[in-house]
């Protein structure tokens, strides 16, 4: 009963922070699985990215938990799989598949001294790399499609939104991979995996060391490209909705460009979240290694929050005025006289 009543349906946000976090974590996790799967297939760099895959599975898991606890009636959440048409159903299936294949893939990077019986079945690992990349990408695209199919929300209902979410998810994923790359399994640990022969160790060490450097370089360049792409797509998104014939979409876009969200958009997103990380990547050093990826991740989260809270519905004629006139702050009075039966 202590819950504050929110009678203004036009300004009420039905999806709030758990959804924003979920969209961020889903994009991040799915993006990491996609990027790690591709990089493993192309460069055989799985050992550098193994920790990233575990992190991605954790992100997807936490995101799913947020989704479930945000529900009004969490005890019936298993019904989510019943409908064939609902996008949320497909999202739930894709999340489970991506998490499952990511986790199986990670099982092959457990400590070699444990000698688990599945270590020799490398074809399973390679198959999982392909499948987790596929389903990871599907999760990434799904987070954008979920919002963009809503005809009732003019600012979301544009094909640019899934593109923006995909680019942003891949940029955050690349940033997270760059932060986690090579942290575990450690360099010495990889050497231990190779064998005890000193000569082989030295050679393999050189190759591996070079590999890690090369991989970081690849990740940084990829993130630079993705950040530039994100700037372009984000500007396209806001400017096309600004030019849209739908007055509601236009009003929300104006809020971003010059209204109450302008500071967050221009300074938070555009400057601190995208332009500065690009420059830091360009300059190299500690800034490129630690600061830029963290800023890119923060920008991804900020973007999800800004979009989730831009959920304005087109007003019916006179509706705005009606809700403005409803009483506010009378919750205790209105509920106090309820009969005690």
């Amino acid at each position: 009963m202590s819950h504050k009543m929110d009678t203004n349906k036009l300004e009420k946000h039905y999806w709030i922070w758990p959804i924003a976090w979920y969209l961020f974590l889903g994009g991040l996790g799915g993006g990491i699985l996609f990027a790690a799967g591709i990089l493993d297939m192309v460069f055989h760099a799985g050992y550098i990215l193994a920790l990233g895959v575990l992190f991605a599975v954790a992100c997807l898991g936490i995101g799913s938990m947020l989704l479930i606890f945000e529900l009004g009636q969490p005890k019936v959440f298993l019904r989510v799989f019943l409908s064939a048409t609902a996008i949320i159903k497909w999202g739930a299936c894709l999340l489970i598949l991506a998490m499952g294949f990511g986790f199986i893939y990670f099982l092959f990077w457990l400590p070699p001294e444990w000698n688990l019986f599945w270590y020799p079945w490398l074809w399973i690992r390679d198959l999982c790399a392909v499948l987790m990349a596929l389903f990871g990408l599907c999760v990434v695209v799904y987070t954008g499609v979920l919002l963009s199919t809503m005809k009732a929300k003019p600012f979301w209902n544009t094909p640019v939104l899934p593109v923006l979410f995909t680019v942003s998810a891949l940029s955050t994923a690349t940033a997270a991979l760059a932060l986690l790359a090579g942290m575990w399994p450690s360099y010495e640990y990889i050497l231990a995996m190779i064998g005890s022969d000193a000569m082989a160790q030295a050679m393999a060490g050189e190759v591996l060391h070079a590999n890690k450097e090369v991989m970081m370089e690849i990740l940084h360049i990829a993130d630079k490209i993705l950040v530039i792409a994100e700037i372009v797509v984000l500007l396209l998104y806001v400017l096309t909705t600004r030019a849209s014939g739908n007055l509601t979409a236009k009003a929300v876009a104006l809020e971003w460009i010059s209204g109450k969200k302008a500071l967050l958009f221009w300074v938070g997103m555009m400057l601190c979240g995208l332009t500065i990380p690009f420059l830091l990547y360009q300059l190299g050093g500690v800034g490129a290694e630690y600061v830029a990826p963290v800023l890119v991740l923060a920008a991804g989260l900020l973007l999800r929050f800004m979009i989730v809270y831009s959920d304005r519905r087109r007003s019916m004629p006179g509706e705005e005025q009606y809700y403005r006139r409803l009483p506010k702050g009378d919750e205790r009075f209105l509920q106090g006289w309820k009969a005690p039966y």
Binding site: V76, R314, M316
Partner: peptide, 27 residues
């Protein structure tokens, strides 16, 4: 009894015909 309260239908209705009460949880 079947509604899990994900509110996707509330967001999809262009007429604002749906609502959810915080204490009840269903749409």
């Amino acid at each position: 009894t079947k509604c899990m309260g994900c509110k996707v239908c509330v967001n999809s209705c262009p007429y604002g015909a749906r609502d959810v009460n915080h204490d009840e949880g269903f749409v």
